[in-house]
Amino acid sequence: MTEAAAEPLITDAMRATIGQRSEPTISEVTTTGVRMFARSVGHVDPVFYDVEEAKKAGYRSLPAPAGYLGTPVYDPRYNDATFGGRRGQGPGPQPSRPLTRILNGGTEVEYFDDICAGDVLTAVGYTSDIQERAGSIGQMLITTSKTEYTNQDGKLVAVMTGTGIRY
């Protein structure tokens, strides 16, 4: 154990990736996408299903339910069939010893404006922080990544922060 603790997991190559911005990807917010997401969560507020109700409540169209940042455009030439994301982006440079297990540590979203059906969001991601910590499951690598969503008017509307744990 002391030997494992002596060797840091984080390498200089990993540190160098912090802040490197990804190629932009497109995420579409459509009435169908909003309804499908809202239905799968079990939302009951008609604003997520009925455009007239949404407008009466002050939205431009169906609002994106919390956690929904549009549907990434899928193209089998570029996207992963299981997770939908761009293939080949991978976890980036490897730590000093292989870590095979991955946990989703958490999700956070900050909103700066309404996101509604009809919006087309451009998403750019980057790693904002890499930490290592010893926990009950041993030495863990904790990667914080951020994705910025900008709408068709060039306005930053949301930032999603994800925490990945590898061990």
Binding site: A57, G58, Y59, G105, G106, E108, Y111, D114, T161
Partner: peptide, 11 residues
Amino acid sequence: NNARIKKYGCS
């Protein structure tokens, strides 16, 4: 709908 979530998250 007279409110907006500014920020939220969970672990």
